[in-house]
Write a protein that binds this DNA or RNA. Structure first.
Lengths: 221, 221
DNA sequence: TTATAAATTACGGGAAACCGTAAAACGGAG
DNA sequence: CTCCGTTTTACGGTTTCCCGTAATTTATAA
């Protein structure tokens, strides 16, 4: 079992609860912080002191407040932490439920477990800690089903750019200009029209408005 | 101070944390549930047994799962509870940060306090409980500023209907048909065009797509 | 009831978006 | 370099949307 753990979670109530979970697992040597910057600082120090944390439990979204922070969210934190100590295990404990985002955490950030804040999250977190301490990965239950369904359409960077511009009020006919200014290669109006109608066809939508809300819900834009 | 309290919160971790807060306030007689239906049941029973709960601490959004529930969220719960026992005090403890929604809780549901899940939420919850036990209302700090800014445009039910239909893929020119079928009075195409352009003018938007994402973020649709 | 104001709807010209087709540019393989 | 296939762009007709004006209906008060 882990001997030295760090909790990074801005919500005080959740932070308290995670502390209690560690207590239930008889892990006494842990620290907790409310800001990503503090988390990175503690981990850096622990590595230098040759007493590294073995596990980081962190949230993804951290709210901004009066204290100016370098690291804006858990993803940035994980990347910096992994650079300092690639051996540290990471559990993300978050309310995020959009499959693409969670998938990205495993794929891009190389996290060891994802526990979603939900009905049995305390028990699930406990289980995740136990599983990882044995050297395994832990994928949250509700994710397994989520991952397989979608994939109706793979959004390219161009697609996302187009949708973002539309949602910012740029006229379709003016999008080519924006793309050229930013040196994005396919920039013809026809291409944009084609992409949009293709996306709608794949997802069986009829209007851009539908596409926008769909991507909003999925966290694509 | 309150002597008998009920916690309704589906997230186990948050539920645990609220329990701990009550413990810190030396409130020993409390119960906790993970479903709205259970909460209403307990409160109804306590009233019949002439030992009513004095305070309900509840979340707003409850996730659906295998257990079929009558009450889908905290708002429905509060309404039912108030019908059974109008004297009970209510604290909403939620991550909701959209001012219109929070405002509605005070105005329509007559809640006594709103504590947002955030950095110092445990301390804030503690304070709210203390304040209310003295017979006062408690408005979360971060709300006060939020309430005054917006109000750039007051969305009518018609507005919301139009935006909802658009986001579902209904063509603008077909909206009059939908409105007539549901006996919604202004149903002319011109009126719809006018509402849309008026909304966009007020909010300084140029496209429907912008309007949609804006309303999504505000929780209007 | 009638006069007046407000809201709703009808209409029409112009802009933007949609959609199919064809032309042009690009990218290997031989 | 040429050929071939793919991607990108250009173009034109049609639909939908936008927006101003005018007509109509509804509401309100004298």
């Amino acid at each position: 079992m882990f001997e030295k753990v760090l909790i990074a979670e801005d919500h005080e109530s959740t932070n308290i609860s995670v502390q209690k979970t560690l207590g239930d697992l008889a892990i006494t040597q842990y620290d907790y912080v409310y800001y990503c910057d503090d988390a990175l600082l503690r981990i850096s120090k622990s590595v230098l002191a040759q007493q590294p944390y073995q596990l980081l439990i962190t949230d993804i979204s951290f709210e901004e407040d009066h204290r100016e922070q370098k690291l804006k969210n858990g993803i940035e934190l994980i990347m910096k932490v992994k650079a300092v100590d690639p051996t540290i295990k990471v559990i993300v404990f978050s309310a995020e439920d959009r499959p693409n985002i969670i998938e990205g955490l495993f794929k891009d950030q190389g996290i060891d477990a994802y526990v979603r804040k939900a009905r049995h999250d305390a028990k699930e977190l406990k289980l995740a800690i136990e599983t990882i301490s044995k050297g395994k990965k832990h994928l949250a239950n509700q994710l397994r089903q989520g991952v397989k369904e979608k994939n109706l359409h793979e959004f390219t960077t161009l697609d996302i750019t187009i949708l973002t511009l539309l949602s910012q009020g740029v006229l379709q006919k003016d999008i080519p200009l924006y793309l050229q200014k930013n040196n994005i290669k396919p920039s013809g109006l026809s291409t944009i029209e084609k992409r949009l109608s293709h996306m709608k066809e794949m997802l069986e939508f009829s209007k851009n408005e539908q596409l926008i809300v769909f991507c909003k819900d999925l966290g694509i834009i």
